[in-house]
């Protein structure tokens, strides 16, 4: 089975974020592979170990993003590709990613490389958009299942489990297809030092848009952030009074309406 894994480098969850003014954000230079993507990589490696085939990891990002590909190599990916082009700089920044532009690039990569299965994380931990995977499947016109918690390969198809709205569904999906990984899918491994050192020395090649036959004018930012705010870190407490039942109902209302937290 030929498996592609899409990975993204995102700011570390502990990186500090600061608003320089209302139209520019600064993120501390600490990056990591998005958590859900680590699950996708692990699942790809397990499928390969069980059924044979190859695992190829792909990312769209500037030079520093090559690090997540090195990690994929260290974990056992057979090959990696970093896609970058000056034309992508405005749509893939430290703080925001234009999903459709990235999906276009990834769909082109997938066609270029060929595949039976694409795995990616359910969403990236920075923007939580959960859009690039679905969009890529739409552009490739292949079936997809998001947020899977179990994957089993069969002849020409794949059987997955997905939790949604309190129910667990078992879904059969014809190949080629795209799956996105949800928490609980697996426990990612630690890389062997031998492979780490090899990966550390590997040359990570970048492919540009021309290599993928994408016109630069196909890359435009469909959604643009125009201003930012960084909420004050200090919390100020609102005490909700009343009998338990009333206080509880009021708490639920406020969590929903004021914070969209439920």
């Amino acid at each position: 089975m030929k498996i592609l894994v899409f990975v993204k480098q995102v700011p570390d969850t502990e990186a500090l974020v600061e608003a320089l003014d209302d139209s520019s954000l600064k993120v501390e230079e600490k990056f990591e592979m998005s958590f859900f993507d680590t699950l996708a990589v692990e699942e790809a490696l397990r499928l390969k170990e069980k059924h044979g085939g190859t695992v190829t990891a792909v990312t769209v990002g500037p030079e520093r993003a090559g690090e997540v590909l090195r990690t994929c190599l260290a974990l056992g990916a057979d090959s990696v590709f970093r896609i970058w082009d000056e034309a992508l700089a405005p749509v893939v920044t430290d703080v925001f990613t234009d999903s459709l532009s990235v999906a276009r690039v990834l769909a082109a990569v997938a066609k270029h490389l060929g595949f039976d299965l694409i795995l990616c994380g359910k969403q990236a931990l920075d923007d939580d958009a959960a859009a690039v995977g679905v969009m890529t499947a739409a552009l490739l016109e292949i079936p997809f299942v998001t947020a899977v918690t179990s994957v089993k390969a069969e002849e020409g198809s794949i059987r997955v489990k997905q939790k949604r709205d309190g129910a667990e569904r078992e879904i059969k999906c014809e190949l080629p297809a795209l799956l996105s990984a949800e928490k609980g899918l697996n426990e990612p491994r630690q890389p062997q030092v031998m492979k780490v050192m090899k990966a550390a020395r590997a040359k990570i090649d970048a492919m540009d848009l021309a290599a993928l036959k994408i016109q630069a004018d196909a890359i435009i930012s469909t959604v643009k952030p125009v201003s930012f705010t960084v909420p004050d870190k200090a919390r100020s407490i609102s005490i909700i009074e009343g009998e338990p039942a009333d206080a509880a109902a009021e708490l639920v209302r406020r969590l929903r309406e004021e914070r969209q937290a439920l």
Partner: peptide, 22 residues
């Protein structure tokens, strides 16, 4: 249309505009 949504895992919030004619 203008929309708002959290970014960077909730550490910031953004206001977003959309490319016209799409």
């Amino acid at each position: 249309l203008v929309a708002e949504r959290p970014m960077l895992g909730g550490k910031a919030a953004g206001t977003f505009a959309f490319e016209p004619d799409r």
